[in-house]
Simulated scan of single mutants.
Amino acid sequence: MSTPESSDVSTAHPGRGAWITRIVLLVVAVLSSVTIVRLVGQVDWEAAWDALTHLSWWHPVVLLAVVLVRQILLAMPLRFFIRGVTFYRATINDLGATLMSLIAPPPSDIALRVSMFKSWGVSPAKGLAGTVMNSLTFYIARFSAPLLGFVLLLAVGESPSLRWLELLSIAVAVGILVTVLMVVRSDRLARTVGTRAGLIVRRFRRAVDPDRWADACQSFRADIAERFHSGFPLAVLSQVGMMVVDLVTLTLCLRFVGVSANEVGFVWIGIAYLFAFPFTVFPLWGIGIVDALILAALVEAGGREIEAAAVAGLIVWRVFTVGLPVLLGAVAVAAWRREIAVAGTSRPS
């Protein structure tokens, strides 16, 4: 949820703190991925390049279609939480925000979202509340992913080993879920959550006013409560569906470059993906660290002989799941601008 102090901070130093955080996380991701790749072994980049030559002309067409489904599912919570936002509008809103978050400092993505909402007749307060719930729902799904990973490990009879540490991720998901349920349950609980959160944050930032945080939580509840009970279950399902489609995309990328089902089965790809997915919290969907973790798990399952092809598959996966949404974001913004231009010319002067 946005805080009362956020507007003051952004006015004084627009986006500086957020960009510093992103840079620090990106550095951590790079260092972590380098460490993990060294543990896996030296990558044969020439062999990885040869694996990329396995791609046929129709492979990108299939991946484009699958990624489009992924992006629609990713944006679906906006449709469930905000009245007046269709699936199409939710998708272009989310794609546009993805583009802005990469090319301009925060909160440019929020500014674009609000502009879109206003052009569709949605109040900024309702739009922002739906955007917050969109993010919270995704975070719950993101940090719950290892739970499905444990289920797959149980199904194949494999020991979790160091993966028990992923219980911390599941605990984070439970914490977010409990907090959201408390906020939407009643005004009293919403104010209690806001006040306590403000008191905790004030230990690190003396300017924080817990009463204003309580007001913000109460206002958030008022804006989201109407559609929460019907929208939240559907929103969670859409995010689980998004992860399934993302996993299918990864599997297709690996198969297209020569990693066969006999070498690494779908279940093992799923285990690698689900335990790495919480690390998409790092910038650019955890590019680097997530790939290194998946690569390590794939090599463990299929042997060193699949390493080069796995690297090639991960490269293709990142091109389509990180690079393509940015290009689609540019198309989405152009489509929205054309929409408001047409709407403007159709109105009487």
Rank of each mutant, 00 (worst) to 15 (best):
T3H: 09
P4A: 03
E5K: 11
V9K: 11
T11L: 13
A12Y: 09
V30S: 03
V34P: 04
V34N: 02
T35K: 10
I36Q: 02
V40I: 04
V40Q: 07
W49V: 15
L52F: 02
S56K: 12
S56T: 14
L63Q: 08
R70G: 00
Q71A: 00
I72W: 08
F80Q: 12
I82G: 02
T91S: 09
T91H: 06
D94Y: 12
T98Y: 14
L99Y: 04
P107A: 07
V114W: 01
S115Q: 14
M116V: 12
K118W: 00
S119W: 10
S119N: 15
P124M: 06
G130W: 02
G130R: 03
T131F: 15
V132M: 08
A141D: 05
F143W: 05
S144F: 07
P146V: 03
G149I: 03
F150T: 01
F150L: 02
L154K: 13
V156G: 09
L162W: 13
L165W: 05
E166C: 15
L167I: 13
A171G: 04
V172C: 04
T179H: 11
V180P: 00
R185I: 13
T192N: 01
T192G: 05
V193I: 03
G198K: 08
R205I: 08
A207S: 15
P210S: 03
P210R: 03
R212G: 15
A214H: 01
E226F: 12
H229T: 12
H229F: 09
L234D: 08
V236H: 08
V236Y: 09
L237T: 08
V240A: 10
M243L: 11
V245C: 07
V259S: 01
N262M: 15
F266N: 11
I269W: 11
A272G: 07
Y273E: 10
A276P: 10
P278N: 05
P278Y: 02
I287G: 07
V290F: 09
L293K: 12
L295T: 00
A297Y: 02
E300P: 00
A308F: 01
W317M: 13
G323N: 03
L324F: 11
A334N: 08
A335V: 13
W336E: 08
A341E: 14
A343S: 08
G344E: 15
T345Y: 09
P348T: 07
